[in-house]
Design a protein around this nucleic acid. Sequence first.
DNA 1: GTCTATATTCCGATAGAC
DNA 2: GTCTATCGGAATATAGAC
Lengths: 198, 198
Amino acid sequence: MARRTGRRPGKPDTREAILDAARTAFAERGFDAASIRAIAATAGVDPALVHHYFGSKDQLFLAAMNAPVNPGELIPRIVAGDRDGIGERLVRLFLGVWDSPAGTAGVALLRSAMSNEWTARLLREFLVTQVLRRVLDHLDVDPAELPLRGSLVASQLIGLAVMRHVVRLEPIASAPAETLVAVVAPTVQRYLTGDLPT
Amino acid sequence: MARRTGRRPGKPDTREAILDAARTAFAERGFDAASIRAIAATAGVDPALVHHYFGSKDQLFLAAMNAPVNPGELIPRIVAGDRDGIGERLVRLFLGVWDSPAGTAGVALLRSAMSNEWTARLLREFLVTQVLRRVLDHLDVDPAELPLRGSLVASQLIGLAVMRHVVRLEPIASAPAETLVAVVAPTVQRYLTGDLPT
DNA sequence: GTCTATATTCCGATAGAC
DNA sequence: GTCTATCGGAATATAGAC
């Protein structure tokens, strides 16, 4: 969470209560279906107060997505290490983040991106500039292959997240993270550093 | 995206026009956001007529999903053949269906399942009973491993479909199908018949 | 800073005329 | 079969009183 400089509006925790309720609502219903009224009710405030703080539903969504996780400090921990273990470390970190409270924002972004174009763009840019590029930059592979390798990794990891947290297909939905790490890591490792048939 | 089929001479099949408009609308906006009024407008009919034909929005969705593809006759074509080529044939069939006009219904179901619980259940049951079980029944592997193998296959294939047709992450979104078949087939083959680390 | 009241728009569904 | 008219409800957002 970024430090709060400058003006602190209202009671200190009212704003955080709204953001928390917003993340939960967006995660459970997606951007369009989540309503400011319901978010305000959960946070115990008036709907008009949400507008007062955040201006619009779009800005509320952005504010709710901003806090939870910072790839800039997580990714370096997985690219540092032996090259053959990068797939395993990436899958383990990925599942860990989604299983943590911070994962709520991920589910919210994922659900929203499915039926709302501007949140889909948000997800694309997050994946490309915050995750994939940071990982791929540290691999010594043909630069021409990087985009394909990156989107293949994304397809497997996002597919995993969708099945585990949105569609909830068993046994993936309830399996221990390490079980999934063991079986999926080889796939991600091959997409990252393996031979890609042309 | 006007998907107006022109009027048939002598037999204006308005019912099919409605179903076609419905599939497109559900594919582009998901179940909740797609409106009967907009579907009726696209089909060139009155909104009340849609209710007259289909009774409710739920039933309209079911009718729109029902037509397009029948796994019962497609799957046998991929389980018949050498065991080591099942992954490749499955990925090729999967991508082919999604790239065809029938894929519109798939995108509709996928988008809807992300923010609507009963369509999510529809997707789960379709995957399990219509696709995965038909494929896995013909493999000679430990029955206890079938659910995990099946959901792993689903996670990779659905992730691929999400990236190609919903989030539209490049280069997966525009790559030739055979390019993706070549790189993803080994993954699916391993999930189906390979050794799964315990 | 907080909330009441409201403007505006859109939704699914129904009743009933032709 | 097809459409006009409408009911009942929920949404975002704004204006303005305390």
